[in-house]
Amino acid sequence: MSVLVYTENWDGKFKKLSYELVSYASALAEMLGTTVTSVTIGETDDNVLKELGRYGAEKAINVTGDSLKTLDNQAYAKVISDIALKEGSKVIILANNNSGKALAPRISVRLKAGIGSGVSKLPLNLDPFTVYKRTYSGNAFAHLVIKSEIRILTLAQNSFEVAEKPENIVLEKVQSGIDGSLVSTVVSETQKQSGQVILTDAEIVVSGGRGMKSPENWPPLVELAGLLGAATACSRPVSDEGWRPHEEHTGQTGKIIAPNLYIAVGISGATQHLAGVSSSKYIVAINSDKDAPIFEAAQYGIVGDAMKVLPKLVEAVKNMKK
């Protein structure tokens, strides 16, 4: 009956996201009167797995096998589906990140389980099972009824508070029976970003738009981000122009993020931009045009020239840290 949660490992470790998922699963399990089981694919240390117990998981299943070394959507979806069946899980939770989006639909077909994707809060109702789902790129929310007996939810990153709920966790190691013929993904090269805060993981994001005028003007913005432990982001025209790397583009056609704080500098606040950032808990806007639509989405605003305001903000943060 348990709630099953897919806790992805990154090089043998968990990220905060995994604890958010388990915390969400625990809260949901409590509503349903059941327990939480996690599944992790690939070699993961016992001590790492045990950490999940701190957020409410009572059982951690670790599946390993030669054919599961890199993400193959078909094989991974089968592993998770088989465990869900064995555990009799009625709800399966994944992150609404790249891998969650790759796996959830495949599990859905295997188990004939409806998906509530990108949820950010607990279900509104258990009977019928109803979730609150972002639609129209954030311009509307739907009360979505999942009619199937098994339900899949993908949780938006940074939308659910990590909460401790210590449980005695049991570890179960499973050698996968997946044979190689199901694996069709051949990875020839892997590049990983290092040393920077990853945009989708970041709790604070400092973002620049066309109002930054030219790529030479970015240093104070980057410095501000560094001081705040923030990731840097940008609007689409900025990445289209090649002023900033594509990974930084946020919005409808870029990354969708929900940090605690989003600082938008020289960004007008077009609907397509807001589609990617409107779930941020706080938005600060710095813009020279007092009528820019970004101020309608922001809680705090400064009307002024970014080139003058940014250095002063950098100073103010330095003073705060003293």
Partner: peptide
């Protein structure tokens, strides 16, 4: 179909911007 929209709603309005 496995899912069905019961009702749509607008996102909660944000508080007015405070200017500094």
């Amino acid at each position: 179909p496995l899912t069905e929209v019961q009702v749509f709603e607008k996102p909660a309005p944000r508080a007015a911007c405070r200017f500094i």
